[in-house]
Amino acid sequence: MAILVIAEHDHASLKAVTKNALTAAAKIGGDTHLLVAGSNASAAAAQGAACAGVAKVLLADAPQYADQSAENIAALVVSLAGAYSHIVTVASSAGKNFMPRVAALLDVAQISDVTEVQAADTFVRPIYAGNALATVKSADRIKVLTVRATAFDAVGEGGSAPVESIGAAEDTGLSKVSGRELTKSERPDLGAAKIVVSGGRGLGSGENYRKLLEPLADKLGAALGASRAAVDAGFVPNDFQVGQTGKIVAPQLYIAVGISGAIQHLAGMKDSKVIVAINKNADEPIFQVADYGLVADLNEAVPELVSKL
Protein backbone atom coordinates (compact mmCIF):
# COMPACT_ATOMS: atom_id res chain seq x y z
CA MET A 1 0.00 0.00 0.00
CA ALA A 2 1.09 3.53 -0.62
CA ILE A 3 1.65 6.47 1.71
CA LEU A 4 -0.18 9.77 1.35
CA VAL A 5 1.74 12.84 2.50
CA ILE A 6 -0.27 16.04 2.77
CA ALA A 7 1.80 19.00 1.62
CA GLU A 8 2.04 22.22 3.55
CA HIS A 9 2.18 25.16 1.15
CA ASP A 10 0.99 28.68 0.51
CA HIS A 11 -0.33 27.80 -2.98
CA ALA A 12 2.60 29.55 -4.70
CA SER A 13 5.28 27.41 -3.09
CA LEU A 14 5.82 24.33 -1.00
CA LYS A 15 6.75 24.92 2.65
CA ALA A 16 10.14 23.46 3.48
CA VAL A 17 8.73 21.27 6.28
CA THR A 18 6.90 19.17 3.69
CA LYS A 19 10.31 17.80 2.71
CA ASN A 20 10.88 16.62 6.28
CA ALA A 21 7.54 14.80 6.22
CA LEU A 22 8.61 13.12 2.97
CA THR A 23 11.68 11.72 4.72
CA ALA A 24 9.48 10.30 7.47
CA ALA A 25 7.35 8.66 4.76
CA ALA A 26 10.46 7.22 3.11
CA LYS A 27 11.41 5.62 6.43
CA ILE A 28 8.01 3.90 6.57
CA GLY A 29 8.67 2.57 3.06
CA GLY A 30 6.33 2.31 0.08
CA ASP A 31 5.21 4.50 -2.80
CA THR A 32 4.74 8.05 -1.62
CA HIS A 33 2.03 10.27 -3.06
CA LEU A 34 2.01 13.96 -2.20
CA LEU A 35 -1.35 15.70 -1.92
CA VAL A 36 -1.40 19.40 -2.70
CA ALA A 37 -4.84 20.80 -1.89
CA GLY A 38 -4.96 24.45 -2.77
CA SER A 39 -6.31 27.20 -4.94
CA ASN A 40 -4.17 28.04 -7.97
CA ALA A 41 -1.56 25.80 -6.43
CA SER A 42 0.06 24.31 -9.54
CA ALA A 43 3.37 25.99 -8.66
CA ALA A 44 3.41 24.28 -5.26
CA ALA A 45 2.51 20.99 -6.94
CA ALA A 46 5.39 21.38 -9.40
CA GLN A 47 7.80 21.88 -6.51
CA GLY A 48 6.39 18.77 -4.87
CA ALA A 49 6.95 16.80 -8.06
CA ALA A 50 10.62 17.76 -7.96
CA CYS A 51 11.13 16.32 -4.47
CA ALA A 52 13.11 13.10 -4.28
CA GLY A 53 11.05 10.02 -3.51
CA VAL A 54 7.66 11.33 -4.61
CA ALA A 55 5.98 8.83 -6.95
CA LYS A 56 3.00 11.01 -7.79
CA VAL A 57 1.58 14.40 -6.89
CA LEU A 58 -2.16 14.69 -6.46
CA LEU A 59 -3.34 18.24 -7.09
CA ALA A 60 -6.79 19.18 -5.86
CA ASP A 61 -7.17 22.74 -7.10
CA ALA A 62 -10.37 24.43 -6.01
CA PRO A 63 -11.44 27.73 -4.41
CA GLN A 64 -12.56 25.99 -1.20
CA TYR A 65 -8.94 25.09 -0.44
CA ALA A 66 -7.78 28.72 -0.53
CA ASP A 67 -8.12 29.05 3.25
CA GLN A 68 -6.87 25.54 4.06
CA SER A 69 -9.79 25.01 6.43
CA ALA A 70 -9.53 21.92 8.62
CA GLU A 71 -13.03 20.83 7.62
CA ASN A 72 -12.42 20.93 3.86
CA ILE A 73 -8.89 19.51 3.90
CA ALA A 74 -9.98 16.66 6.16
CA ALA A 75 -12.98 15.85 3.94
CA LEU A 76 -10.69 15.61 0.91
CA VAL A 77 -8.09 13.46 2.67
CA VAL A 78 -10.77 11.10 3.99
CA SER A 79 -12.16 10.69 0.45
CA LEU A 80 -8.73 9.53 -0.72
CA ALA A 81 -7.74 7.51 2.35
CA GLY A 82 -9.00 4.10 1.23
CA ALA A 83 -6.05 3.65 -1.11
CA TYR A 84 -3.39 4.25 1.56
CA SER A 85 -1.78 2.47 4.47
CA HIS A 86 -0.41 5.66 6.01
CA ILE A 87 -1.44 9.31 6.00
CA VAL A 88 1.32 11.67 7.04
CA THR A 89 1.71 15.39 7.56
CA VAL A 90 3.81 17.80 9.58
CA ALA A 91 2.90 18.59 13.20
CA SER A 92 2.60 22.29 12.34
CA SER A 93 -0.33 24.47 13.32
CA ALA A 94 -1.99 23.44 10.03
CA GLY A 95 -1.33 19.72 10.44
CA LYS A 96 -2.43 19.71 14.06
CA ASN A 97 -5.60 21.47 12.99
CA PHE A 98 -6.92 19.13 10.29
CA MET A 99 -5.30 15.74 10.93
CA PRO A 100 -7.28 14.72 14.04
CA ARG A 101 -10.45 15.25 11.98
CA VAL A 102 -9.08 12.81 9.41
CA ALA A 103 -8.32 10.21 12.08
CA ALA A 104 -11.72 10.59 13.76
CA LEU A 105 -13.63 10.31 10.48
CA LEU A 106 -11.65 7.18 9.58
CA ASP A 107 -12.19 5.83 13.11
CA VAL A 108 -8.47 5.34 13.68
CA ALA A 109 -6.00 6.70 16.21
CA GLN A 110 -3.72 9.58 15.36
CA ILE A 111 -0.09 9.33 16.37
CA SER A 112 0.98 12.91 17.07
CA ASP A 113 4.39 14.49 16.70
CA VAL A 114 6.31 11.38 15.64
CA THR A 115 10.08 11.75 16.06
CA GLU A 116 11.18 8.29 14.89
CA VAL A 117 9.83 5.59 12.62
CA GLN A 118 10.82 2.18 13.99
CA ALA A 119 8.65 0.07 11.71
CA ALA A 120 5.63 0.59 9.47
CA ASP A 121 3.38 0.26 12.53
CA THR A 122 5.72 1.37 15.32
CA PHE A 123 6.62 4.95 16.10
CA VAL A 124 8.33 7.00 18.80
CA ARG A 125 6.80 10.22 20.08
CA PRO A 126 7.61 12.55 22.96
CA ILE A 127 5.17 12.84 25.86
CA TYR A 128 5.20 14.99 29.01
CA ALA A 129 6.93 17.90 27.26
CA GLY A 130 9.61 15.58 25.93
CA ASN A 131 10.56 14.26 29.38
CA ALA A 132 9.73 10.77 28.17
CA LEU A 133 9.59 9.03 24.81
CA ALA A 134 6.74 6.63 24.11
CA THR A 135 7.13 3.84 21.58
CA VAL A 136 3.67 3.01 20.27
CA LYS A 137 2.38 0.33 17.93
CA SER A 138 -0.78 0.85 15.92
CA ALA A 139 -3.17 -1.94 14.98
CA ASP A 140 -5.36 0.38 12.89
CA ARG A 141 -5.77 -0.37 9.17
CA ILE A 142 -4.70 3.17 8.30
CA LYS A 143 -1.97 4.85 10.30
CA VAL A 144 -2.52 8.58 10.66
CA LEU A 145 0.61 10.45 11.72
CA THR A 146 1.81 13.95 12.29
CA VAL A 147 5.59 14.14 12.34
CA ARG A 148 7.96 16.55 14.04
CA ALA A 149 9.80 18.32 11.22
CA THR A 150 13.02 18.84 13.17
CA ALA A 151 13.35 15.09 13.80
CA PHE A 152 13.67 14.25 10.09
CA ASP A 153 16.06 15.60 7.45
CA ALA A 154 14.60 17.21 4.36
CA VAL A 155 14.48 15.14 1.16
CA GLY A 156 16.52 16.47 -1.72
CA GLU A 157 15.51 17.56 -5.18
CA GLY A 158 15.83 15.52 -8.36
CA GLY A 159 12.39 13.94 -8.55
CA SER A 160 10.20 14.21 -11.61
CA ALA A 161 6.89 12.84 -10.46
CA PRO A 162 3.76 13.22 -12.58
CA VAL A 163 1.16 15.70 -11.33
CA GLU A 164 -2.34 14.26 -11.48
CA SER A 165 -5.27 16.63 -11.09
CA ILE A 166 -7.99 15.23 -8.89
CA GLY A 167 -11.46 16.52 -8.16
CA ALA A 168 -12.26 18.45 -5.02
CA ALA A 169 -14.35 16.95 -2.26
CA GLU A 170 -17.65 18.63 -1.49
CA ASP A 171 -17.25 22.06 0.10
CA THR A 172 -18.34 21.62 3.70
CA GLY A 173 -19.00 25.37 4.02
CA LEU A 174 -18.42 25.07 7.76
CA SER A 175 -16.00 27.93 8.31
CA LYS A 176 -14.79 31.12 6.74
CA VAL A 177 -11.51 32.95 7.24
CA SER A 178 -12.21 36.65 7.62
CA GLY A 179 -8.71 37.86 8.35
CA ARG A 180 -5.07 36.99 8.77
CA GLU A 181 -2.38 38.97 10.52
CA LEU A 182 0.92 37.42 9.57
CA THR A 183 4.15 38.59 11.10
CA LYS A 184 6.29 40.04 8.35
CA SER A 185 9.98 39.36 8.71
CA GLU A 186 13.07 39.37 6.58
CA ARG A 187 14.62 36.88 8.97
CA PRO A 188 14.73 33.13 8.44
CA ASP A 189 11.74 31.07 9.50
CA LEU A 190 11.94 30.12 13.18
CA GLY A 191 11.28 26.44 12.55
CA ALA A 192 13.94 26.12 9.86
CA ALA A 193 16.67 28.57 10.93
CA LYS A 194 20.24 27.39 11.52
CA ILE A 195 20.63 29.88 14.37
CA VAL A 196 17.92 31.05 16.75
CA VAL A 197 18.23 33.98 19.16
CA SER A 198 15.54 33.70 21.79
CA GLY A 199 14.56 36.08 24.59
CA GLY A 200 12.70 35.74 27.86
CA ARG A 201 11.24 37.75 30.66
CA GLY A 202 14.75 38.82 31.71
CA LEU A 203 14.77 41.31 28.84
CA GLY A 204 12.24 43.38 30.75
CA SER A 205 10.30 44.91 27.86
CA GLY A 206 9.50 44.56 24.18
CA GLU A 207 11.62 47.62 23.53
CA ASN A 208 14.63 46.08 25.24
CA TYR A 209 13.99 42.76 23.44
CA ARG A 210 14.23 44.55 20.08
CA LYS A 211 17.11 46.82 21.08
CA LEU A 212 19.28 43.94 22.30
CA LEU A 213 18.29 40.91 20.27
CA GLU A 214 17.62 42.32 16.79
CA PRO A 215 21.27 43.42 16.28
CA LEU A 216 22.44 39.99 17.46
CA ALA A 217 20.03 38.18 15.14
CA ASP A 218 21.07 40.48 12.26
CA LYS A 219 24.73 39.75 12.85
CA LEU A 220 24.18 35.98 12.94
CA GLY A 221 21.49 35.77 10.25
CA ALA A 222 19.34 34.19 12.95
CA ALA A 223 15.63 33.79 13.53
CA LEU A 224 14.10 35.38 16.62
CA GLY A 225 12.23 33.36 19.22
CA ALA A 226 10.92 33.83 22.72
CA SER A 227 9.81 32.08 25.86
CA ARG A 228 6.16 31.96 26.83
CA ALA A 229 6.81 34.55 29.54
CA ALA A 230 8.05 37.05 26.94
CA VAL A 231 5.04 36.41 24.70
CA ASP A 232 2.55 36.64 27.57
CA ALA A 233 4.18 39.91 28.66
CA GLY A 234 3.57 41.24 25.16
CA PHE A 235 7.25 41.70 24.20
CA VAL A 236 6.73 39.81 20.92
CA PRO A 237 3.89 38.21 18.89
CA ASN A 238 2.59 34.73 19.73
CA ASP A 239 4.25 32.99 16.82
CA PHE A 240 7.67 33.69 18.37
CA GLN A 241 6.99 31.21 21.16
CA VAL A 242 9.33 28.25 21.44
CA GLY A 243 8.18 25.41 23.65
CA GLN A 244 5.90 22.47 24.35
CA THR A 245 2.90 24.22 22.88
CA GLY A 246 4.68 26.69 20.64
CA LYS A 247 7.29 25.99 18.01
CA ILE A 248 9.70 23.09 18.32
CA VAL A 249 13.13 24.11 17.05
CA ALA A 250 16.42 22.26 16.68
CA PRO A 251 18.91 24.71 15.14
CA GLN A 252 22.69 24.39 15.02
CA LEU A 253 22.90 27.17 17.59
CA TYR A 254 20.27 28.34 20.07
CA ILE A 255 21.06 31.43 22.12
CA ALA A 256 18.74 31.83 25.11
CA VAL A 257 18.87 35.34 26.56
CA GLY A 258 17.14 36.09 29.85
CA ILE A 259 15.27 32.79 29.72
CA SER A 260 14.96 30.80 32.95
CA GLY A 261 14.34 27.45 31.25
CA ALA A 262 10.93 26.16 32.36
CA ILE A 263 10.22 22.53 31.44
CA GLN A 264 7.79 23.75 28.79
CA HIS A 265 10.44 25.92 27.13
CA LEU A 266 13.13 23.25 27.22
CA ALA A 267 10.69 20.91 25.44
CA GLY A 268 10.85 23.19 22.41
CA MET A 269 14.62 23.65 22.09
CA LYS A 270 16.62 20.97 23.89
CA ASP A 271 17.38 19.13 20.66
CA SER A 272 19.38 22.11 19.39
CA LYS A 273 22.96 21.17 18.53
CA VAL A 274 24.61 23.87 20.63
CA ILE A 275 22.84 25.84 23.33
CA VAL A 276 24.10 29.13 24.76
CA ALA A 277 22.46 30.64 27.82
CA ILE A 278 22.98 34.20 28.98
CA ASN A 279 21.39 34.94 32.34
CA LYS A 280 22.49 36.77 35.44
CA ASN A 281 21.16 34.08 37.78
CA ALA A 282 23.49 31.04 37.79
CA ASP A 283 20.81 28.83 39.36
CA GLU A 284 18.36 29.00 36.46
CA PRO A 285 17.53 25.58 34.94
CA ILE A 286 18.47 26.81 31.45
CA PHE A 287 22.13 26.38 32.46
CA GLN A 288 21.60 22.65 32.99
CA VAL A 289 21.00 22.15 29.26
CA ALA A 290 23.38 24.85 28.00
CA ASP A 291 26.70 23.89 26.44
CA TYR A 292 27.99 27.39 27.05
CA GLY A 293 26.49 29.24 29.96
CA LEU A 294 27.41 32.87 30.54
CA VAL A 295 26.41 34.22 33.92
CA ALA A 296 26.21 37.92 33.21
CA ASP A 297 23.93 40.94 32.96
CA LEU A 298 22.36 40.55 29.54
CA ASN A 299 22.17 44.32 29.06
CA GLU A 300 25.96 44.39 28.95
CA ALA A 301 26.77 40.93 27.62
CA VAL A 302 24.55 41.01 24.52
CA PRO A 303 25.90 44.29 23.06
CA GLU A 304 29.43 43.08 23.81
CA LEU A 305 28.68 39.81 22.03
CA VAL A 306 27.40 41.74 18.99
CA SER A 307 30.56 43.84 18.91
CA LYS A 308 32.87 40.82 19.15
CA LEU A 309 31.18 38.72 16.45
Binding site: A109, K137, S138, F287, A290, D291, Y292, A296, A301, K308
Partner: peptide, 28 residues
Protein backbone atom coordinates in the same frame (compact mmCIF):
# COMPACT_ATOMS: atom_id res chain seq x y z
CA UNK B 1 -5.98 1.58 19.50
CA UNK B 2 -2.32 2.11 20.22
CA UNK B 3 -0.26 -0.26 22.30
CA UNK B 4 2.52 1.42 24.23
CA UNK B 5 5.54 -0.84 23.86
CA UNK B 6 7.77 1.21 26.11
CA UNK B 7 8.28 4.59 27.69
CA UNK B 8 11.90 5.62 27.92
CA UNK B 9 14.05 8.52 29.06
CA UNK B 10 15.08 10.85 26.24
CA UNK B 11 18.80 11.00 25.44
CA UNK B 12 20.43 12.98 28.19
CA UNK B 13 21.90 16.29 27.22
CA UNK B 14 25.36 17.05 28.54
CA UNK B 15 24.80 20.61 29.65
CA UNK B 16 26.14 22.68 32.47
CA UNK B 17 29.22 24.09 30.72
CA UNK B 18 30.16 27.66 31.57
CA UNK B 19 32.22 30.32 29.86
CA UNK B 20 34.19 33.01 31.69
CA UNK B 21 33.13 36.00 29.62
CA UNK B 22 31.88 37.14 26.22
CA UNK B 23 35.31 36.75 24.59
CA UNK B 24 35.52 33.17 25.83
CA UNK B 25 32.01 32.49 24.48
CA UNK B 26 32.86 33.84 21.02
CA UNK B 27 36.09 31.86 20.97
CA UNK B 28 34.34 28.59 21.91
Amino acid sequence: RLATLKVSEPPKRQGGGKVADVADLVNK
